[in-house]
Design a protein around this nucleic acid. Structure first.
Lengths: 184, 184
DNA sequence: TGACGATGTATCGGGCCGATACATCGTGGC
DNA sequence: GCCACGATGTATCGGCCCGATACATCGTCA
């Protein structure tokens, strides 16, 4: 894909958890990935477009390399503390179909532990500082606590499904997503 | 308050919506606020601590100035697009007790509009791209959609309460929070 | 007495965002 | 027929924020 396309694709895939990636991040990152050898410019045959005549630089189509695929798989499988906060977990989860069940269970349980900690912190505040905070702040904490409790239940459902060999919504997980056939 | 104390205070007040502010942001920001004249160093009498003998720099207690109070009230009352995304709305809401009802209603309705847009976007994706996305990505979108629907309901409840002159949880809003009496 | 965690202030490198610039292309209105 | 506008596309820059780190004090508990 080229940058603009990649941005749109990621925006729909990660639409829930974050806004579209900015251009100030996108293009420098593509360059860094190319320098690292994880992606490369695709052949003209892959792009299927007529190169522009007058403009300085047309669209640049990138392709993941073999090394990039390896590195990507590694990144998805390894989990550190930042894997369990909102942004990190969202990205990992969105690419769960590229991982094995053990990795999925490990990340789901780590995320659950993280949310449970946040939940306990909020309960602590609500019980200990409720007289020191105004009504709106308290309402905000209650709303946050509610969200934590819902997410824990959601995670437990997912964990149960994984353990019993079911993917979300009761379907079998795709080890490799179906190939994309849309290239206008 | 001094920096460290302020950080803790904000962490409990905003615990739901963001992590504690980093030191790399906190101290430069305090300096910028002081340069702008919105805060100033408090008198030694206000600090009630014995200044350190050997260390280079003890705790620095800051105090908001009259101009700072004015500016803060302005910032709370004015609402732009960034007021309605997660971080901005959370901050405004946490300080709702410092604003008037018209401002609160304006911000609540702006936030509702924003979340409704996100909700429609997710519904769009779920109905149009459900065959192109894998099961995990779809589950993520469904979970996000659910969160949007819950937040809209929460906001509508708050809006109804504001219109009928009730604060959250049915109490009357504090125009000025009760003075803090904890200074160890 | 000494280790450890909480309390405190401060800086630095790097990543990310918002704004901006510039160019092409399709479409719909007048 | 023409023009404005929005979508498509690549690219850079200033500025803000974070994580890591350094350094120092204080209370507590073994």
């Amino acid at each position: 894909m080229h940058g603009y396309e990649l941005r749109k694709e990621l925006a729909t895939k990660l639409g829930t958890i974050r806004a579209a990636i900015s251009y100030g991040t996108l293009y420098p990152t593509l360059k860094r990935l190319q320098t690292a050898g994880w992606i490369g410019e695709a052949e003209a045959a892959d792009t299927e477009i007529i190169p522009p005549l007058t403009s300085k630089r047309g669209r640049v189509v990138y392709k993941i390399t073999a090394e990039g695929k390896e590195r990507f798989a590694e990144l998805l499988a390894q989990a550190g503390p930042e894997t369990y906060d909102d942004a990190g977990f969202g990205v990992h989860f969105a690419f769960f179909s590229r991982t094995d069940r053990a990795t999925r269970l490990r990340i789901l349980e780590g995320r659950r532990r993280r949310i449970e900690e946040r939940r306990e912190g909020l309960r602590e505040v609500l019980s200990r500082a409720s007289d020191r905070l105004d009504a709106y702040t308290l309402e905000l904490q209650r709303h946050g606590l509610d969200a934590c409790e819902r997410e824990v239940r959601w995670l437990e459902e997912l964990i149960t499904n994984e353990r019993s060999g079911r993917s979300p919504a009761g379907e079998t997980p795709l080890e490799d997503p179906s190939p994309r056939q849309d290239r206008p």
